[in-house]
Design a protein around this nucleic acid. Sequence first.
DNA 1: AGGGTTTCTCAGGGAAATCACAGATTTGTG
DNA 2: CACAAATCTGTGATTTCCCTGAGAAACCCT
Lengths: 246, 246
Amino acid sequence: MTTISPQGRTELLRPDGSPVRVLVVDDEQSITELLSMALRYEGWRIRSAGDGQGAVQAAREFRPDAVVLDMMLPDMDGLAVLGRLRRELPDVPVLFLTAKDAVEDRIAGLTAGGDDYVTKPFSLEEVVARLRGLIRRSGAADRRSDSVLVVGDLTLDEDSHEVSRGGDNIHLTATEFELLRFLMRNPRRVLSKAQILDRVWSYDFGGQANVVELYISYLRRKIDAGREPMIHTRRGAGYLIKPAVS
Amino acid sequence: MTTISPQGRTELLRPDGSPVRVLVVDDEQSITELLSMALRYEGWRIRSAGDGQGAVQAAREFRPDAVVLDMMLPDMDGLAVLGRLRRELPDVPVLFLTAKDAVEDRIAGLTAGGDDYVTKPFSLEEVVARLRGLIRRSGAADRRSDSVLVVGDLTLDEDSHEVSRGGDNIHLTATEFELLRFLMRNPRRVLSKAQILDRVWSYDFGGQANVVELYISYLRRKIDAGREPMIHTRRGAGYLIKPAVS
DNA sequence: AGGGTTTCTCAGGGAAATCACAGATTTGTG
DNA sequence: CACAAATCTGTGATTTCCCTGAGAAACCCT
């Protein structure tokens, strides 16, 4: 089921109305903390583990609806952990975290069951979106929830990556797409440049903060060009998106 | 009966609307896990067994609509297992898994009754497709469901392996065919290279991920050449197929 | 054995995306 | 109105990703 929280954010709930449960497994504490924060903010219940042992035990006790699993753990091989997790939780989808350059060798066969993966360093927007997709498709959350975000006459389909405004198709690059998704998931809410940077860019991004301005500019050209603007600047505070008819 | 799930995926159901049941028998646990995940994702109910004993017992209790049976089991000869299964489940189709170099004529005799076989190492796309075919033809699922995929003016017949666009017949190699089938079974959905690799190439494929790019390139030459393109690249995300007229 | 076909690796070229930089523009303030 | 701060955007360098030609190896059929 999808509900609208008092703050206007949408969150997934299980069919019985209880919050979705996610287990996060990574040996770097900074990563588990980062992810836990972000995923709790989505309205999910989070448990984390720092090694394979702990992961298996947490799986047994916590009965998560989805797992985020780093493939590089200190005590066990990622595949071994996966096997043990599968025995505990046969139908639970897994989102793998892998190093950028290790993608090809070990992921083979892993995403076949409908699992998914993201490479480190990731952006939170990416992780959250993938997890939402996995949970949605696994049936842990109500299947009626679909993959299309709508704000005014602007739509964004998370499955097909298609964006259109007033019927016109709009092509976006990967970064533009993620930025717009973040805005559209928080309509009518001012998002600071820092929030956007933390959420849309990967956690190790070391560049200039004005990339956000730059990408807002790109988005405006594609989405607001010649139309009633939907993306607004709140000087000194940030940006927000809302339907054109205010 | 064939239904379209909310996500746009098609899944087979039995005439009474309950999910199709499949028993997977293999002594390598990695294989049963891989298959279980993939087949569950098709919307089927799965039970697995690791030897002949377990298979016979599971057949008795679980009453599957189809069986995937490795012919190399530790405790019994494959033929013996088959015999015992047949006694339990006289009309249930069997998909055999055999080593590449196994004696083919023996298998050929077995498949005469409407069964089928796949050689190891297999691709999931292959197993799923064969299984769907067996189930469809056995009558466990509604027979009205047919074997032709259609996207725009492009059609692909899973039985005859014929592909045509706008009336023109197109010859595809085996790999090209499986890639196109996978795309067409997920129209308008972005599929990552990892997903494609996991699904279309065999589970032990250790090669370069750019075979996917290469085969996409081959497909384009045959399908999109001189026409409105149907295969699209989403840079940084993957590929998708959709009708040309958008 | 031999020719045709298919699968796959490798590597070069090219296009697209990302980002830094800097100057232009806007906005709010006194 | 003038100024400063904040924001916007044009330009181009760099990086990343994708496409495809060429050829080697495996396979298949006769």
